[in-house]
Design a protein around this nucleic acid. Structure first.
Lengths: 343, 343
DNA sequence: ACGATTTGGTAAAACGTTTTATTTATTTAG
DNA sequence: CTAAATAAATAAAACGTTTTACCAAATCGT
């Protein structure tokens, strides 16, 4: 069966024309008569001609592929993001090669290097500590790059992410509105700027609400701790913070860990402890009594990232107004932040 | 800054050798003296030479890219799968281009066509109804293909998936062991063979346990129903099946829908209704009292798929013994199937 | 009617590799 | 010492496109 793929040369032969003519017709470039055009188009159609992307890529230097480097394609946040990114990119005729770094610096570096082998036309990357230089060197080499979910302060690498500071600030505000005053936070020790911004938002909100700055009520989970250890750590933390009546988890990973911990401790939500977590997902909407979350605008982030990347790819310039794009999040209020019964 | 990428030709010039020599050294092919080899290697190293994948691909016809076509990269099951697949493929120097079909036939067809443009060396596909011919034609054209999560009966396209029949059978058995006798099922109307196999397993188990065949206790959710409608449908179903004391959801999507429905109806699990769902995930482990699930061996499936695909790619033959690979699942028993209090 | 422009078309180079066939120099066998 | 084998290196073709530069024929303006 194995019909060998047909090339532009074959079409030229079949139509008694030249390679150039065929190429022109297929790309609508030169000026070729209606007649010949039609004949060529017909033959191409009939034989199911598809251009050889390798040849095109070699000749033009354009692969129509973009590289996506995320922490873990398996996670709910990045998974959803990856999906939207693929769908949007497809509209521009681009395909996506992805890889997960698992927050492993070496893997990140390797991936950037791999993809740089003239394989991709641009990058969407979730930055991590230590990757600055590698990414900057991409930018210096005029490779289109957009960061998502994080950024490198003080550089001009375009990035699009949720407004982490405001989001965390709003979370605290929500607790306060519902009458909670001893608000703790559980975050992770990954050196990620986004987590730092969330911490800052939390602290600023505490201050603005004239709540005692509770730096004591903050737990940082070390980055190399596994899920079970994390649960134990959160349990210990909650146990120790006797007066804490609300807790803010800065990632959905931490949030589900937290739920497990709270469940293990047999505490009631929100009576014993009110809860807000970053990143909405099914667990939080389903878990009784419903967990209030900060829902990231996944679609908007992905769409903007692609748009900015495409603009770079097409214009070879980067729009200075699009370097720092922070998109507001949405607070989804559920049972876990019901107004506190006045003591 | 923009140092232009160095080519094999540049290296030849820099070392006073020929293109061929450089290529040979870099690929360890011809026989070149230690001396010259070292010089070339040094220069290549120093200048950060990376081969142009397009040129290599054009010349060799090998892209070192494999195409992954799944229902939705965003889902927990396929997301996890995608992650493992990428990690395993990477070990063989392969990268992954993915796309989500969202169970849309046209998108599936388009994707297969896109990727066929000499862009990928092989495919991992979750099959869907209507895609048989397109996939068969890949196989006929000697493209390496492995199906995951489903298969086409009566074809010899290699596939690896969980043992759906046995898994469903075991679920029913688990209910029975715990004393449940009126076991319903909620499944989807997607025309997917894997769902059909699950239904068959369920029915066989009912029969073997001498339970009345409860074809009345089966709900099929139409494939175009959205989540809210689905929840309503499940609620209506549960409401109508007065005597039903246990229900089996054939996908995790249906399972979470089911939990929502049960929650809305204010039924207790497992006292009012015992529950088992296909596909383990965080929701099920966390949701009180813990939902018993059929955990698919994601890693094993992904690993086997890659192995089989690589074997095809490398040998250009397909190992007849590896065409139908069904891997056992693991039943994770939780609170939702606690032994029934005797009536 | 004659140079100038337009129209329709093509030859050939280039992109960066891999690989076959060949050449030259050196070693080995007898 | 010569023929044969081997070692080291290379020239050139090929992969399938895109694109520049060019050519011949037809059309134009005056």
């Amino acid at each position: 069966m194995m019909k060998k793929k047909i090339s532009i040369k074959d079409i030229a032969k079949l139509t008694d024309t030249s390679i150039t003519t065929v190429s022109f017709v297929l790309n609508g470039k030169g000026r070729i008569s209606k007649e010949i055009s039609k004949k060529i188009l017909d033959v191409a159609q009939k034989n199911g001609y598809e251009p050889n992307r390798m040849a095109v890529g070699l000749r033009t230097g354009v692969s129509k592929v973009i590289g996506l480097i995320v922490e873990s394609i398996g996670g709910p946040f990045f998974g959803e993001m990856a999906k939207v990114i693929e769908e949007e990119a497809e509209k521009s005729g681009y395909r996506i090669i992805y890889c997960s770094t698992n927050n492993n610096l070496q893997k990140g570096k390797d991936m950037i290097r791999m993809l740089t082998q003239q394989l991709v036309d641009g990058y969407i990357i979730t930055p991590m500590k230590g990757l600055e230089k590698d990414i900057q060197s991409l930018v210096d080499n005029e490779k289109p790059v957009v960061l998502i979910d994080g950024y490198f302060p003080g550089t001009n690498i375009p990035h699009v992410l949720v407004d982490n500071f405001a989001s965390a600030y709003n979370a605290v505000d929500c607790f306060v509105r519902s009458g909670y005053k001893n608000i703790g936070m559980v975050t992770a020790d990954l050196g990620l700027i986004q987590l730092n911004d969330r911490s800052l938002g939390y602290k600023a909100a505490l201050k603005d609400n004239k709540l005692k700055d509770s730096s004591k009520m903050v737990l940082k989970i070390p980055f190399d701790m596994d899920k079970n250890e994390g649960v134990e750590a959160v349990k210990a933390f909650i146990d120790k913070q006797k007066q804490m009546d609300a807790v803010f988890f800065t990632t959905n990973y931490l949030g589900t860990m937290g739920l497990q911990a709270i469940k293990d401790l047999k505490l009631r939500i929100p009576e014993d402890l009110a809860v807000i977590s970053f990143d909405d997902n099914e667990v939080f909407s389903l878990y009784p009594p419903g967990i209030t979350t900060i829902q990231q605008p996944t679609y908007d982030i992905a769409k903007s990232a692609i748009d900015i990347l495409m603009a770079q790819i097409n214009t070879h310039k980067l729009d200075a107004s699009k370097i720092d794009l922070q998109i507001p999040s949405k607070l989804i209020e559920r049972g876990s932040t019901l107004a506190k019964a006045s003591a």
